[in-house]
Design a protein around this nucleic acid. Structure first.
Length: 468
RNA sequence: GGCGACGUGGUGAAGUGGCUUAACACGGAGGUCUGCAAAACCUCUAUUCAGCGGUUCGAAUCCGCUCGUCGCCUCCA
């Protein structure tokens, strides 16, 4: 059974067949670095992360490119306001992005190309478009893509180009376009704005061209999967297809994947409206990163999702359940014969997990298979019917599935020495049946974010994620 | 105005023609275990899938209409 994905362009759900067998090339639209990312941005990054992790789990080689937009109108404006270069501003926010990404356990992309480092590729691409009659210059030194030269324009977004609501809020004709629907490939230099001296003249790249140039540079003229939020379907990805295919004559992307919006207060989360929850703010407020990851990941990517405190708390509780499960398996010791059913249970669980994710990344069903396993195994733990070795192999199997999910607590985390001492003291107090002391130590540990529980296998502890 | 998605319990959500009088998670009620607590386990928590009509031996699942929500057509993940 192969991984099947729903392509935005055709609407079909097709088996993934990489252009190069066994090697999947993926490009994801990444952050625009003029401020901190919000959780909606990360929803789309995490959905791409899930895809990449799953394909790798499936044994495929994946080359994952995520671009960083470090030159655009807003970045220029912010840099001017802060009296710094766009380079410095970009560096600052890239660092913030990487920190947020690490906290949310985003797989590090293989390449994180920056637009400003690909000016040559961008210029080269625009020159090819000009040579092919798909682009034209305006008196101010800008270059535009001529939509009328590309009949397939509008296919991705299912828009009729002649029906676009021209003149309402479409970018004004300040650059002297032939047709208001044409989009900028290159913007002629303006005083006070960063610009590059190139064969096209002085100026800077438009927004869409960078993704065509960088994806081609790092993945070739045709590649397998391109991801992004639905809000990028039009015009960004539509424009990418037009300019890429017009330049190369090759089909640009095999499968387009778009993630639905994250909502806040019932409305789309978007920087422009200020309707956002920033990742960095949440992390600083002590929200558990794993709970946040769970909340953003646990709903199918094409389904709209509301970001709420309730959902975050529920996600934290689900994470706690997983943590308790891992802790129980870790500590479990029972000298009995191996349970012959364990292998069957694990196999069924893995099959269900893979069948779910094969089906266009059905994460809800995949998580269900994990939680069904959790309950089944907890029953066996209660009954003491599995062996120590069984517990080991179950834990190994669950950790293997977690290569895809990235939700389980880190194994072998360094325990704060202070905490270790308290745990030892408490174990000693319990051995001496000194309940008041052991209870006091338990409270103290909880204050340090460590939940202690007593079981037949002894005292066990775990990080109290949902306490955050 | 054009185009599209969606509407399942207290909440999120899977299921898209019979395996489902509906998975899984969260929440709630009761119970078992336990020095206590927590965790875990057990039982219960939608005879019903927005409403109405139709197709079918059979529908949450297909078709039509109605109502409602959200999105795209503009910077945006």
């Amino acid at each position: 059974m192969a991984v099947r994905l729903q392509d935005t362009l055709t609407g079909e759900t097709r088996p993934l067949e990489p252009l190069e067998p066994g090697h999947v090339r993926i490009y994801s639209c990444g952050p625009t670095v003029y401020g901190p990312a919000h959780v909606g941005n990360f929803r789309s990054f995490l959905f791409a992360d899930l895809l990449v992790r799953y394909l790798r789990y499936r044994g495929l080689r994946v080359t994952w490119v995520m671009n960083v937009t470090d030159i655009d109108d807003k970045i220029i404006k912010r840099a001017q306001e802060a009296d710094e270069t766009i380079e410095a501003l970009g560096n600052r926010w890239i660092e913030r992005f990487l920190a947020d990404a690490a906290a949310l356990r985003l797989t590090t992309p293989d390449v994180l190309p920056r637009a400003t480092r690909h000016i040559d590729e961008i210029v080269g691409l625009i020159e090819r478009l000009e040579a092919g009659g798909h682009a034209y210059r305006t008196p101010d030194g800008s270059v535009f893509f001529r939509i009328s030269s590309w009949p397939a324009y509008g296919r991705l977004a299912r828009l009729d180009p002649t029906q676009l609501r021209v003149g309402e809020r479409v970018e004004s004709d300040e650059y002297g376009k032939d047709d208001v629907r044409d989009f900028a490939l290159w913007k002629g230099a303006k005083p006070g704005e960063p610009s590059w001296d190139t064969a096209l003249g002085r100026g800077r790249p438009g927004w869409h061209i960078e993704c065509s140039a960088m994806s081609m540079r790092h993945l070739g003229p045709s590649f397998d999967i391109h991801t992004g939020g639905v809000d990028l379907v039009f015009p960004h990805h539509e424009d990418e297809i037009a300019q890429s295919e017009a330049a190369t004559g090759a089909p640009f992307v095999r499968t387009w994947l778009h993630c639905a919006h994250l909502r806040l207060g019932g409305e789309k989360m978007a920087k422009s409206t200020g309707n956002i929850a920033r990742v960095v703010d949440l992390l600083e407020a002590g929200v558990s990163p794993r709970a946040l990851r769970y909340a953003l990941l646990a709903v199918h990517y094409r389904q709209g999702l509301d970001y709420t405190e309730t959902a975050l708390a529920a996600a934290g509780a689900a994470i706690d359940r997983l943590d308790a499960f891992v802790a129980a398996l870790d500590l479990y010791r029972q000298d009995v014969a191996d349970d012959p059913e364990v292998a069957t249970v694990l196999r069924a669980s893995r099959n269900a997990f893979e069948a779910a994710l094969d089906d266009d990344l059905n994460i809800s069903a995949a998580l269900a298979s994990v939680f069904e396993l959790v309950r089944d195994v907890n029953r066996r733990i209660d009954a003491r019917s599995i062996s120590t070795a069984d517990a080991r192999s179950i834990l190994a199997a669950v950790r293997d599935l977690d290569r895809v999910l990235g939700l389980l607590p880190d194994g072998g985390v360094d325990l704060d020495p202070r905490v270790a001492v308290l745990l030892d003291d408490r174990a000693a107090a319990r051995a001496a049946r000194d309940w008041s002391r052991s209870d006091a130590l338990r409270d103290e540990l909880l204050g340090l974010g460590v939940a202690v529980e007593d079981t037949r296998d002894g005292q066990r502890w775990r990080r109290a994620e949902s306490q955050a």
